[in-house]
């Protein structure tokens, strides 16, 4: 039986592995990932990023924003006794002090939000506009699985907490729809006896509710629906579960695997289904799907880890990743386990 501890471990490691393994493949399309990064094959291990990627200069195994933000947010929430706006803000400011993460990896939406929290000057020339469509990015979804882990089995609380923690950086209904989808799905994945169907249904519910609820307090935004695209991605995941090439081609070609919340998060759900919740299988899909690979691999890795635990993760990865990132991953997992008792 998969224990709670094992699921927490699976979620945190799944996110860290996806992020670190995807960092060297980020921005490339699948064919260039195979050609330039994988030596003709799909990438299924940690390699050193090439000089022409965002992660240039990092050693193999070093994470980007996806895991580091999730890690620091989790610590801040434990310290604060729960998920609060203040703790989320504190975590983002703390994160921005890590040169190795912030300089190369702060996304456009988070970067502006952090500057605002710090009281720094930001570009306001488009603030007059009634919508901020360019803030519909995946930086909310990438960390929102934490709200699912902290609220296992409680979908409503997971959705609310995801919006609380993510609106700090993503004041946008499309981005928060994606965040709520990931949180709701993770909250259900964390429970024993949950099925793939249960997780996807919770994700669809989260996407719908997250959009409707956040519309009331965020700056408005146009943009394709996260919920509708999750449906499409899940269909592709089912149809191509046994065809790795076809899966990546269809997911990247039709759903999209870019920085937008309405591409990356649906793709993460599609891979969760195609991998039947198995951590490493889903991560390999994310790492090789092209475009925003590390974020997709990190999200799908976290959801799968919550669903199936850490049993399929190679046992040396924990110490390898902790060392490569100088982070106490086990310490955090222990603390989250204790906090959620």
């Amino acid at each position: 039986m998969t224990t709670k501890y094992d699921r927490i471990k699976g979620a945190y490691l799944g996110c860290a592995i996806g992020d670190a393994m995807g960092a060297p493949t980020e921005t490339r399309p699948t064919d260039l990932i195979k050609k330039d990064v994988g030596g003709g094959r799909y990438v299924k291990k940690f390699v050193e990023p090439r000089p022409d990627t965002l992660a240039a200069g990092q050693p193999a195994g070093q994470c980007t924003d996806d895991f580091s933000v999730s890690y620091l947010s989790s610590k801040a929430f434990i310290e604060a006794g729960g998920i609060t706006k203040e703790a989320a803000e504190k975590a983002m400011v703390e994160w921005s002090k890590y040169d190795r993460y912030y300089i190369a990896h702060s996304g456009p939406t988070s970067k502006k939000a952090i500057a605002l929290i710090k009281g720094e000057e930001v570009d306001t020339k488009n603030d007059y506009a009634c919508c901020n469509n360019s803030a519909a990015t995946n930086g909310a979804g990438m960390k929102a699985w934490v709200a699912g882990v902290f609220n296992m089995g409680n979908v409503e609380k997971a959705i609310e907490d995801a919006m609380t923690m993510c609106k700090v950086t993503h004041d946008n209904p499309v981005a928060l729809s994606a965040a709520a989808a990931v949180a709701a799905a993770t909250a259900v994945a964390m429970t024993k006896n949950s099925t793939l169907d249960d997780v996807v249904s919770a994700g669809l519910y989260g996407a719908h509710e997250g959009y409707e609820r956040s519309w009331k307090f965020t700056k408005p935004s146009a943009g394709a629906s996260v919920e509708d695209r999750i449906r499409m991605a899940v269909t592709i995941g089912v149809n191509y579960a046994n065809d790795f090439d076809g899966l990546l081609k269809e997911m990247a070609g039709l759903v999209g695997t870019g920085l937008n919340a309405n591409e990356a998060i649906p793709a993460a759900f599609g891979f969760f289904v195609a991998a039947k919740g198995k951590v490493m299988d889903a991560i390999y899909m994310g790492v090789n799907c092209g475009n925003d690979t590390d974020t997709i691999a990190a999200i799908t890795g976290a959801m799968c880890g919550a669903y199936s635990g850490a049993k399929d993760i190679p046992s040396n990865y924990m110490s390898f990743l902790s060392e490569a990132n100088d982070l106490d991953i086990k310490g955090l997992i222990d603390a989250v386990d204790k906090f959620t008792d």
């Binding site: 921005t27 490339r28 399309p29 090439r50 990627t53 240039a56 920085l259 475009n291």
Partner: peptide, 8 residues
């Protein structure tokens, strides 16, 4: 700081 391989 660098020239990215992809201008997505």
């Amino acid at each position: 700081l660098f020239t990215p391989v992809n201008m997505n």
